[in-house]
Write a protein that binds this DNA or RNA. Structure first.
Lengths: 124, 124, 124, 124
DNA sequence: GTGGTCTAGACCACG
DNA sequence: GTGGTCTAGACCACC
């Protein structure tokens, strides 16, 4: 058992930017804010930003153009795969958590549909 | 946007202990390790442990006997309710995460059943 | 038989603040002195103050706004319920004390009305 | 506002012994346990006991017989007055508390009778 | 400034 | 031993 998970900031930033991209808050081909702008707005060191961006360029999600900035890939397939990956990660996490609570697959689906029904009632 | 995940240690401990209880790793009526033992094994201050335990005693999940220790309640109803609460929290968390990824209720259920099917194939 | 009245300071503070609230010495929505101010004026550690306040926020009597301070709830129902609770506690305490002195219910009421009559004469 | 009321132990003992007497747990004329016995059973210094007893002898509640011990007075009037005094003190305390909670005389009586009715229902 | 969290170390009461 | 309370001092996040 270990606490104080120091989930590294650059990973958090990476996760955040990926979410922005798959939810189309930043569109394919669009330019990201400059590294310095990001550093300021997220109050983080420039190096931390660069570390987050570099792994995303490695994955082909971003393209760096010297002197111009970082751009979201225009390759929609890449973005679609990213989305699937994020969903997959989330599913893993969910499944692990709920089964550790002793729920069977059927129980999970049942609880979830009940939850959605209730949610629907509350909001509409 | 906030980084450095500020989920307090005492809440993490609380969550951890609750999970131990609902999964019957610690049985109803059983004694927990002493606050000092927990503090050492989790490498945390005694106060932090006590803070985690105190809210659990308030909720009736634990009963503390001065000079003896902290015991899990024998009231199975309390434990059942705790389990329901944990599941509910997890559902909230899941739903929020997945909808932020742009999934509809139907899409969530579809993805989840696919995930389970795949999981089933892998393991059996 | 137990001496040295072990009523913890943080509970005394809690009780004191609740009394201030139900008697409208601090109005609904009003800000309390900062934890540090309270700590100084009551010559107590900051933690002790926070411990007193935290259970009050849990009960919905206080609302804390980070960086701003602790505010009495504007929800008058909560305050009314608090008042009823305090009265109830006082009644319990009174009843226990007077019956331990050997008074019957009727005797208690008789003594009390006599007391009030006398009090009335003194002051008016 | 002052906390940690160090209500002196000798006063607490005095109060305790007076209650024993008015409730006839120790009868008029009866001998109290020896100072040393009391000191042991209450885990308090002998001097503390003596201080408590001396003010009670001053009030005529106890009579000290050199070499024999401390005896409760046989004078029933004294005991009756003591009882009235204790009741009076309690009434003062009650009245102060409840009026500080904003209750009128009538409200106090009303609440109290309601409380007694409820108490009666619970116990029989 | 505000409150929130954590640590280290002390003392008490209970068994 | 057990848990309960308090202090002193530190660092963080929010405004």
């Amino acid at each position: 058992m270990k606490f104080v998970e120091n989930y590294p900031i650059y990973k958090q930033i990476e996760e955040y930017l990926k979410l922005q991209i798959v939810t189309k808050n930043v569109l394919p081909g669009e330019k990201l804010p400059s590294v310095r702008q990001l550093a300021v707005s997220l109050t983080v060191n420039v190096h931390t930003i660069q570390r987050a961006l570099s792994s995303m360029t490695d994955e082909g999600i971003l393209e760096t153009k010297r002197g111009l900035g970082n751009f979201v890939t225009k390759d929609i397939v890449v973005i679609e795969n990213l989305k699937k990956e994020l969903i997959q990660n989330e599913m893993d996490h969910i499944y692990q958590k709920l089964t550790s609570l002793g729920l069977s697959d059927e129980a999970i689906l049942k609880e979830l549909t009940q939850f959605m029904a209730k949610k629907g009632d509350e909001n509409g």
